[in-house]
Design a protein around this nucleic acid. Sequence first.
DNA 1: AACATTGACAACCGCGTATTA
DNA 2: GTAATACGCGGTTGTCAATGT
Length: 286
Amino acid sequence: MGRKPCCSKEGLKKGSWTKKEDLLLTEYIKDFGEGTGWRSLPKKAGLLRCGKSCRLRWVNYLKPGLNRGTFTPEEDDLIVRLYTLLGSRWSLIAGRIPGRTDNDIKNYWNTSLLKKLKVQGNEPRKHKSQSKKRRRKKEKSNVSSQINQKNNDENKTRRKKKEKIVEIHNIEDEAATKIEEQPHTQDSVQAVLDNNHNFTSSSRYKDGTSSATSTSEIHSSSQNIEDQNQDGIFEKLQVIDELLLNDNCLFPPEKCVEFNNNENHMLFEEIYEQYFQLVYENSCHF
DNA sequence: AACATTGACAACCGCGTATTA
DNA sequence: GTAATACGCGGTTGTCAATGT
């Protein structure tokens, strides 16, 4: 028995959404919220669509607060920097640009920005393609037991990695103590936290939702805030880049040895991503 | 005017992951 | 521990308007 499709394909509409469908979806979510389960939503809302399709339409098009205007130079710059840092983690990138969706940014990157950068000779370094990575790992099989066997194996691996993360945090604490003796580096670390605070607190609502205001609009509200935020974003990224992508980073030499083989280097990359996410998440609570 | 090409964006697909039973 | 299920993400494809020939 294979895995069931996310929803039955029979009798479901595909292709562009009509105004009527948009209205049905919007009204339903307005009344009952997003958290009622996408799978059951279409039926309840009276839509002949797959739940996935509804989610996509809502998230990328109908959700209030989306900025559908043209990308500003500030946004361009931020996208490039985040891409350089994170690769094609579009959702992560989108999470840092108020009002923009991952699909938006992905499309913009693939159709405009990349070409623009190539012309300028500023093409960012390429990251490993996730799909290729996936494909390498992939073993074509429809047998759910095999899929889950793999999933469970991976869950075990993840648990081990989480334990490793705890270990890394301990190393970080240790390293932080060491850099207290190095004023410049310490300032840089503080800048990461401070600037992260500046940026996110000005671009997000208290409930954690994205602000409807575009980056340029936010910046035009106050020159001081603009300078602070703009500098903050770029400095933060630069600092994190230096601290974590650099081979010698924060970790003491004896610990760096642990990251010398490929497996551990991959692990380090993952930890780094989670670290970045953690910094971001924590910054929203200020 | 007719057709071809290009660009922008919406939407789909398949997979990985988290959660639940 | 295992299997089933739902969600979210990234890559890819489809569609349509604008532009060029």
